[in-house]
Each structure stands twice: as structure tokens, then as C-alpha cells.
Design a protein around this nucleic acid. Structure first.
Lengths: 209, 209, 209, 209
DNA sequence: CATGAATGAGGATTCATTCAT
DNA sequence: GATGAATGAATCCTCATTCAT
């Protein structure tokens, strides 16, 4: 799909509003007003509010797709280095695409089977597959443990990052960072998450102390 | 607050509907219909839909409050045993109070400052404090490491459990458990989570292999 | 179905508006305004505009059902007298229930299969059956011809009346009756139709000159 | 008015859509889509949707004009033969121009005085005049009765044909002709109508048995 | 000459809430 | 104390039409 500037602007705004107010909590008027376009434009461009949501998803989801395909073939890096890269990739992506990530979380909270929820499942399936190959590679090379619960491990990876995104206001309050700029805070969290998760994964995957 | 049977029924149903359809996605008519009461009852009993949400929260939140206060004074158990108990408590609570947990997640996704979101912050603050005391106790006794990022650790605890709740359909699909009953599945996840998280926390907190 | 006064008022107004402006040409606002009720009442009372149409039909259609059942058993009247009574019944009904009749015509003009169109078919089927019995009775008694095309005959009966209802403005113009009151005009047409149709049916059914 | 090919195509499609869905039930987009032209074309070519309707009418109405002018002067045919020809002409035209005929009926159902309804009145007036001359000719020659209600007679002619067009689905159902092709069915109805109407008119107009 | 983009007006319906009973 | 009836506001979407290109 090719979108023109106005359409892209609508998608951007919709992403933000959907992420903070939810699909039902966001009216097409809200979106149209913020985008400075007529309400009818949403239907005109995307067909319906629902379809707009799909467009948001389709347009943003590729930014959430991990770039790990070539990581697998790489022979220079050790398996654990690859995992570390993967972690940083996840952390980066989730913090960067916070709005989209929130939409995904919200969508998973409903039990409705929508086209979007199908896309989420597919996205997760693909990401899981990439990780699985990385792990198996490490196991074949004998540097990773044999019995690894990959689903749980992924739950911890995604869950921990999600949780930090979700509890951002709480974290700021507890750590007295209420006045910190968004960029600085994100940078802070990124480092903390990276260190924390690498520690966890090292313990999970390897036998080293 | 004292609620009569009808009010409690409304709260129960509201919890469930809010959890799966969201606040905006649930109409007071839906709630009233399922509860078998008149639509006007919601406004009459609770003042407004918003207030009903607060009532749901207030009425259910104590079930999510950890029972760890006396754990701290306990002298029979080792710190790591206490942590293990804490983990099981969390896992148990989140899986048991899945609906309420989903409401909490959803509420944290919005940036609106509502009375409910304030209650969530308070709930999290209190739970964090309990854990912090447990950790400090273990550190004082020399069995836990010194530098522990409790926020990240809690992020992993809550995040991992949340993630498993959230991605339940995905997990079932990947593991061929689509036909498994809710109880059996919950039991399965509970065990997996317990083992996984204990392993993680042991690695995070102690120096043992 | 039991309707209260306000509902009946809405149905009456809807019947009139649907008959002159058509279903699509009548907005629920038009109806609500004329009935002096809130727009939401239409949905509240009838569920939807479509359902209102069905209510109109269901509520009015029995007035269009011919009362000929007992006519068949009557032994005092001759078959041709019965037919004459039938004709008058038809003419009366169609002129009296002009609005409803117009709705029926309009509905038959569309090729959509709606619940209403099904009801129309059923109504026509039932009326046809009554007439068929009358005719067969006359044939059995030897006063009616053997080969009678009942479908065509009914087409002429209903069609002629319909046409006169339809071309009322034209008729008035041609006959210089533009200023005649509705009641007077209806009375005039009724007589003309009665005479005309009886003449036709006598020719169609009997061998007399 | 001269119309180019694209305009004619639009008119053809508009005629069909108006006939089955009505004026209000047909959107200019429907027409434009089926015609494979831009939506703006309708306004551009015809000024408005309303004007398009007028164009449809003006462009098609001459096909509904009876060709009886020269029939009157003909000296070879008897008056009743001329009437028979007239009947066949009517039946033919109405069945052939079914769509246009339906539009006319629909238009007569509304009480709005539009340019189109004026055209209809004019068309009917002209047709009536032709028939009146035929009848008078027969009366002058002494083969037709004196007192003939021409308006009613025309009501029967047009009404019967209209009714058969209108109740086509009903007729098919009753006579088990649901699977019959449109052409075959039309041919069947044409013959039936022709026979039926000629019988009626003979009785109405002449003194013969 | 033709059209894609855009829009204001209006469509039906659902919403949470109120109020008289 | 409880509720059925009612409603104004807001929902999304479709409409016929216009206008710059």
C-alpha cells in the first residue's frame, strides 16, 4: 500500500490516539481534528475506522519486525553475543515504537478475533521462530543449555520490556524522575533494561557464573 | 463500602466485561443485561459508569494485594524460600484474578489520570515496598547480592506473568493446546511460570550456581 | 404485538410518509418530528427504521385482509353476487387504505427480499386462495365458465384499482375534478370502479350478455 | 438533447438502478461505478442526480409513446382489430420497457410535483387522446357501445399490465415458474395478457357475445 | 474536457444518564 | 427504593456536489 502525505499523517495520529485512548475511546472526529482534515476523509481514505486501524497496523508493524535473519548465519559472533544483540534490538524497538507496542498490547487484551489480532499472532510467530533458530544454533554449538523453555524466555523478554513501558509513570515516581525529559528517561530505561535482561539471559542460557 | 447482592453481581459482571472489551467497549446496557437488572440501576447504584469502574477496582483490588507482611517477620524460612513463596503468590494471584489483572493493564495503557489509575499506582507502590523489604532482609542476612535492581526485577516478575496471560491464545496455538480446558491450561502455565521465575530470581539474587 | 398510543402515532405517521416518499426518501427524523418525539424513540421503540417498516406493515396489513371466508359458506347469495361483494370489498379496502396500498406497490417494485416483501407475498397468496375458492364454487354450481384465468382476473382487479389510485392526479385533471375534496373524489372513483369492474367480471365469469 | 456514448451508458444504467432501487435508494456512486466513470461525471454531465433522472425519462419516454397515430386513419382494419393492435402494443411496450415502466409507477407513487411527474402526466394525456380517438372512431362506425368509460378502460389496460409486471415474483411462485428464464416468462405473460385483455375489451366495447 | 480529491450536510443508531412514577 | 420511559449528545458512515487541476 502506498499512502500519500495526508494519509500518513492520519495514520501517525491514529497510532498515537489509539495507543493512549484505545480504539473505542478514540473517535474518528478526534483523529480528523488533530489531522486537520474533514471527518469524512477517514472513511474516504481508509473505508472505515476499523480499516484505518488495520492500515495503522500494516504501516507500522514492519518497524517491529526483528532484523535477526542475517544474525543467524553470522559466523563471527558467538551465540551469546547474538542473543545480546537480539535483546538490544527488542528493547530498542519497543521503546522506540512505544505507541505501536501499546496498541499491540491493548489488542491482545481483547478476545475479539479481528484482522489486526491475526496480524499480531503472525508477527509474534515470526519473531518467535527467529529466536528459536538462534537458540538452537547456540545449543548445537554446545554453549547453550539443553533444556530451555523458549516460550517462557520470550515471555520474560517481551514482558519485562512491556512492563517497563507500561509502568513508566510509576517508575518515574518511585525513582524521582518525574521531571526528566522523555528522551533522557527512555535512554535511562534502555540501559537498565539491557543490562538486566542480558544478565537474566546469560543465566538462563549458559552455564557460566 | 458495603454492597448488596445485586450490586456485587453488577461488579462481578462489570469486571469481566471491562476486562475483555475495555471500558469504552462495554456499554452499561451490556452490563445491565447480563446482570439482569435495569439499565438505570448502574447510575442509581454507582452514580455513573466511571464510578462503577472505581467500585470494581476498589472491590477487587484487595484480592491482588500480596500477603507478605507476616512473611518478613518469619524466622523459619530462608530469604530465598520467601522469595519463592512471593513468586508463587504473584503467579497465583495474576492467573486467578486474570480479569482484574487485565483491567489493570488496560488502565495503565491510558495516560488519563483517573481515580482508578491513582489506585493502581498506590497498589503497585505498596507491593513494591513489601518486596523491597524482603530483598533487604535477604541482603542483610548476606544471602542476596548487594546490587539488585528491584524495579527491573519486579518488571520481570510482573511482566513475565502478564505476558503469559496476554499471549495465552498464542501460547496455546504454538504448543498445540488449543483444545485444553481453561483450568488445565492455567495449571500448566502456573507450573511453567513458577519454575521459570524461580530460576531467574535465584540467578538474580544469589551467587549460587 | 401491543402498541401504546405514541407507538401507534409513530406507525401512522410512518405509514403516511413511507407511502408518499418511500422508505429511503423518509428519514427517521422526518417521522420523529411529525410525531413530536425524539429521534432516538424510533430505535428505542422499534429497534430500527427497517423494523419500524415491518411494524407498520404488520399493524396495517390485517386491514387489507379480505373478509371473504364466511362468504364462501353463505348459501343465500349467488356466486356472482359474492363476486360483486368481493369487488366492492377490494375497491373499498384499496381506496380506504390508500397509503398502505402504496407502500405495498412500492415494496413490490424493488427486487430486495425483505421480511416485508415476504409478508406481501403471503398476503397476496392468502387473498388469491379465497378468490379461487369463490370461483370454484361458482364453477361447481355451473354459473361460472370453466376456463377462467384467475391470475389474470386478479391482475385486472388489483391492477385497475391500483391504477386509479396511482393516476388520481391525472384523472382529476382530465375530468376537471382538481378542486374536488378527497372524500368526494374517493366516493366518485369508488362508484365508477365498482360499476366498471362488475361489468368486466360478469363478462369474464358468466355466459350472460 | 444529444448524448454521447458515455452519457447514454450512464442513462441506461441509471434507468435500471432507479427502476429496482428507486431514486433515493440509488446513489450516484452506484451509477458511476457500474458505468465505469468518475462520480463527478454525473454532476458534470447532467448537472445533478435529479437532472439525470429527467434525462433518463426524457431519453426513454418516447419508447413508451404508442404508435397509433396512423392506425386511426387506416381504413382496412376494423375498429376492434385496431383495439387489439393497441392492446398488443401496450403489452409489448410495458413488458419491453419494464424498467422505465417501473420508474413511472414509482414516480406516480410520490406526491411531489417534479418535472418528471409533469412529463408523465403529459405522456399519459397523449396516450389517452390516441385511444379516445380510436374509441370514438369505432363508436361513429356503430360497432362500439355508446357509453364507454374510457378512463376506467385505460385503468384496466395499464393497471392489468402493470400488475403483472409488479407481481411477477408472485406469479412465478404460484405457477411454479420460478426457474423459467426471463425471456420465456415474458413471452408467456405476453400471450396470457393479450388474450385476457382482448376478451375484456371485446366485452367492454362491443355487443357481441 | 474531464477527474481525483475533498467536504458539509445529513443519514441511522447507540450511548449514559435523568426523571416521573 | 427501584425502574421504565425518554432524551440529547455523540457515534460512524454515506451522500451529492464542488473545485482545483
Amino acid at each position: 500500500m502506498e499512502y500519500n502525505d495526508k494519509q500518513t499523517a492520519i495514520i501517525d495520529i491514529a497510532e498515537r490516539l489509539f495507543s493512549v485512548s484505545g480504539f473505542d475511546g478514540t473517535s474518528v472526529r478526534d483523529i480528523a481534528n488533530e489531522a486537520g482534515v474533514n471527518v469524512a476523509m477517514i472513511s474516504y481514505y481508509f473505508g472505515s475506522k476499523e480499516k484505518l486501524m488495520e492500515a495503522v497496523f500494516e504501516h507500522k508493524s514492519n518497524k517491529m519486525r526483528l532484523k535477526v535473519e542475517n544474525l543467524i548465519q553470522d559466523t563471527e559472533m558467538t551465540p551469546i553475543q547474538k542473543i545480546y544483540l537480539l535483546i538490544d534490538e527488542y528493547v530498542e524497538k519497543f521503546l522506540d515504537q512505544k505507541n505501536f507496542h501499546m496498541i499491540m498490547m491493548r489488542e491482545q487484551l481483547t478476545d475479539k478475533r479481528t484482522p489486526v489480532s491475526e496480524l499480531i499472532l503472525e508477527l509474534k510467530r515470526r519473531n518467535l521462530e527467529s529466536v528459536r533458530m538462534l537458540i538452537h544454533d547456540g545449543q548445537k554449538k554446545g554453549v547453550f543449555k539443553k533444556n530451555i523453555d523458549i516460550s517462557m524466555m520470550m515471555g520474560t523478554l517481551i514482558g519485562t520490556v512491556s512492563q517497563m513501558v507500561l509502568s513508566q509513570p510509576f517508575y518515574r515516581k518511585v525513582h524521582g524522575m518525574e521531571e526528566l525529559g522523555e528522551q533522557e528517561f527512555r535512554s535511562h530505561i534502555r540501559k537498565k533494561l539491557s543490562i538486566h535482561l542480558k544478565k537474566l539471559f546469560k543465566a538462563l542460557l549458559t552455564n557460566e557464573a
